[in-house]
Structure formats: structure tokens, C-alpha cells
Amino acid sequence: MKLSSKQVTLLKVFVFLACLVPLGDLGWGLYQDTLGANPIETVIRALGRWALKFLLITLAITPLRKITGFGWLMRLRRMLGLYAFFYALLHWCIYLGLDQSFDWIEIAKDVIKRPFITIGMLTFTILLPLAITSTNGMVQRMGFERWQGLHRAVYAAAMLAVLHFWWLVKLDVTWPLIYTAILSVLLGMRLYYRRSERLQTHAAGM
């Protein structure tokens, strides 16, 4: 299936708006007071989960394109990745503001002392430069090879994000397990493709 550039633009607009639905949903829930007894917790967890979901969706683009052959999927990848960062940013801001009241000393202590927070911070620190260097200009300035090298850090970010989720859960690990499984499939497919590509190059060389 090939899309014209006009269709791709339309698709991008649609995806852009669709990605805002979770945020709108949370905002509406806050406004209507339907987020339960602890709305801040509901919001911060939902934002964290959406950040993770968008990371996984972003990582699913390449394998999906390989399977389907739909080249236009790649045109959505940057936007989806930026949405992962956007939700992570909101998640991070609420932690700093509403959980820690912007008390920087307490925050520093929390980051050092608590592996779960350390991992969360580290994940965000990895995503930040990826978001900053996501423009076409940056790709050119850095050179594609270096840019790609940097952006491979997204694999580490996704693994850390899943770990961050594991450490939050008290007992019921159903969801962390599900996310781990999805991420394993997505990363496993990459390994598989890389190996089969290498085998092909070998075969071609012989």
C-alpha cells in the first residue's frame, strides 16, 4: 500500500490528534472529578503508562514496516517518539511539582536513594537529548551515523522504563510482565532481522 504525500499529511494530522486523546481524557476526568479518590496518583500513573506505551508503539514501527512493507509508517515514527517524550515530560513534571513540591534537595536525595526513582530519572535523561535532536536539521548537523548511534539509546530507555514500572508495583506484576513481553518481542525482532541481514551479506559475499 502506497500513500500519496497528501494522504501522509492527513494521516499525520489524524495521528497527531489521536495521540492527544489520552491527555484530553485525563483532563476531562480531572475537570469532572471522575478520577477517583486519589486523582493525582491516577494522573501521574496514567501519564507514565502512556509514555511507556508510546515508546513501545514507536519501537513497533520498524518491525511493522518490515512485515507489511508500508514505507509511510516511518513517517509517523518521529511524532510517536516525541509523544512518548511529551507524556514522560508531563509525568516527570508532576513528580517534581506535586510529589516533591519542587524541593530540589529532597528530589536529589530521592534520586540517589531510591533505585526506582534513579531509573525513572535516568530514563528521562536519556529521552531528553533524543527529543532535542529529533529535527531534520539536527540529523544533518550530527551526520546520520552519529545521529543513529545516539538514537539507539531509545532501546535502553525502553528497558529502563519497564524496569521503573516493575519497581513501582507492590505485588501484582501482571502489567509489568505484559510490557516486558511486548518489549522483548520488539527487541527480539530487531536481533532476528540483524542476524538474517548479516547471514544474507555473508551469503552474498560467498
Binding site: 486519589n38 493525582i40 506535586l98 513540591s101 529532597e106 531510591r114 526506582f116 519497581w167 513501582l168
Partner: peptide, 19 residues
């Protein structure tokens, strides 16, 4: 005495914005 994975120094009283 903190929980190994989170601080017990503060708490969110349900219905309040800041801890």
C-alpha cells in the same frame, strides 16, 4: 524508616494537592 523502594517521609492526604 523508608520503604526500600520509596520514601515514607511524606504522604498524600487524599483530597490535597501537595504531600
Amino acid at each position: 524508616v523508608d520503604h526500600p523502594r520509596w520514601s515514607q517521609a511524606t504522604e498524600r492526604r487524599l483530597g490535597e494537592l501537595l504531600k
